[in-house]
Amino acid sequence: MKLDELTKGVFKYNPIFYLMLGLCPLLAVSTRVDNALGMSLGVLFVLVGSNVIISLFRQWIPPEVRIPCFIVVIASFVTIVDLFMHGYVPELHERLGIYIPLIVVNCIILGRVEAFASKKPVSHSLLDGIGMSIGFMLGIVAIASVREVLSTGAMTIFGYAIIPIFTETPATVMLLPPGAFLTIAIIMALINYKNIRKERK
């Protein structure tokens, strides 16, 4: 069933909470939901692009040099994202900073290309890329929402106030590195808790 390729990345094998991949950008840019969305779109483009290209040419790539080949393809897509973001959404580009070129070492992408796209047909790889990216987006947006709401006492996405300011003394620590670690720890513990409950039943 083809649709499985799409949904497995979103829930069952979520790249963040199940596979524990792509932690660096996850924690670094999850200070605001805007940044998280921007980052996810970058990852979506790179992952889908690389998955499709690698899958298309998978018979032509000699196994001995497959990793360098993958890296060049991925890095090219990352550079395209970097250039176009700089030109068209300069503010977002500035806030994401070096974490845009660092998409290239995001383990989700090399991981999916190596484990999936280099072995499967194009259509499957396309769906896999979309699914995994949505999974990544869900994870990073979840963490960013918690951090933004707690650290600013409000939530604003691209200028629209989603949650109006409800406190004058927000917990700034959530914006700082400790807050990032704390948020992901608690989200993961909740997932574990749910799984343990399920086992018991």
Binding site: W60, I61, P62, E64, V65, P68, C69, V72, V73, A75, S76, T79, I80, L83, F84, H86, G87
Partner: peptide, 25 residues
């Protein structure tokens, strides 16, 4: 030769694509 030609080709295509995107942006 068999190993390096695909890699070199990929690098050339990548360089060309990026030069085009660079000019565009």
């Amino acid at each position: 030769v068999r190993i390096s030609i695909p890699l070199i080709l990929i690098c050339i295509v990548s360089g060309a694509t990026l030069t085009v995107s660079n000019d565009m942006t």
